[in-house]
């Protein structure tokens, strides 16, 4: 029997060796402390606030509730990788266009959650569904009006040919 290949995943296109990652380590800690990608924020650490949202294989995931070893073989995109991701770049531009942030702490999570929704649904879904689907991301500054405006602008752009 040949020795198994060391477990790996990709983060923003870069291959990462997971061989040294303890079984209990969260993706959030791997990103921030092992890979020094501090864009992903720790809010509640209980899956309640969405600040730590990243994409795993194009789908939004709470990095505080994800064991790093469990995403072996997957591709992770964080806010640092958003400019190189088509949907991430579009969401970023929409946030910039309307100034959709106050303190900015929740912004990486909102951007990645919206990028995931765009990948999944494209133009589809109603405005109410969009609000429901953003319900997992909290803005402690309560700066929701501009965030929703940015999100809605993405939807309209897509919906209108």
């Amino acid at each position: 029997m040949t020795a198994p290949a060391p477990p790996r995943c990709r983060v923003n296109g870069r291959s990462v060796d997971l061989g040294d990652v303890p079984p209990g380590e969260r993706l959030l800690d791997t990103l921030r402390w092992r890979l020094a990608l501090k864009g992903t924020k720790e809010g509640c650490r209980t899956g309640s606030c969405g600040a730590c949202t990243v994409l795993v294989d194009g789908k939004s995931a709470l990095s505080c509730l994800t064991l790093t070893r469990e995403i072996e073989g997957s591709a992770v995109t964080t806010i640092e990788g958003a400019p190189d991701d088509p949907e991430g770049a579009r969401v970023r531009a929409a946030f910039e266009a309307v100034g959709a942030l106050q303190c900015g702490y929740c912004t990486p999570g909102f951007v990645m959650a919206l990028a995931g929704l765009l990948k999944e649904r494209g133009r589809g879904g109603s405005f109410d569904e969009l609000l429901e689907d953003l319900g997992g991301n909290l803005c402690r500054c309560t700066g929701y009006a501009a965030i929703v405006r940015a999100a809605a602008s993405l939807r309209t752009e897509e919906a209108e040919p």
């Binding site: 899956g47 429901e132 689907d133 997992g136």
Partner: peptide, 12 residues
């Protein structure tokens, strides 16, 4: 199903 957690939580 949609009453459970958030989209990101329901992905896992």
């Amino acid at each position: 199903v949609r009453a459970v957690g958030s989209v990101a939580l329901r992905h896992r």
